[in-house]
């Protein structure tokens, strides 16, 4: 710590910023990938029918995706809460 830069706050901003600002979008991408997984019964995602759909038909993938999205939303809610409560 010195009087010009609050290094303590700086590293917190960088680390938490990376986790929240880059980590959460990455988790969101993982979620998207999970929900779009093709089902076992169906063909490849390249067929016309699948191309039109937004969600895949793999139940495990859908569940994993929902968990990812839920974590993202929860993290955002917690983040806003802690900013509000911090003042």
């Amino acid at each position: 710590m010195n009087s010009w830069i609050d290094l303590d706050a700086l590293w917190k901003i960088v680390v938490i910023g990376l986790l929240a600002g880059a980590g959460l979008p990455a988790l969101f991408a993982v979620g998207l990938r999970a929900v779009s997984l093709p089902g076992r019964d169906g063909g490849s995602p390249a067929t016309e029918a699948c191309d039109d759909r937004i969600l895949g038909s793999n139940p495990l993938g859908l569940a994993a995706g929902v968990v990812c999205f839920a974590v993202v939303l929860a993290a955002i809610a917690w983040g806003i809460y802690s900013v509000v409560a911090g003042t």
Binding site: A22, L32, P45
Partner: peptide, 15 residues
């Protein structure tokens, strides 16, 4: 970088 890497292979519409 992470987003493009992780969402590779996701169908266009979903993406």
């Amino acid at each position: 970088y992470l987003i493009y890497r992780l969402s590779r292979g996701v169908p266009d519409r979903t993406r």
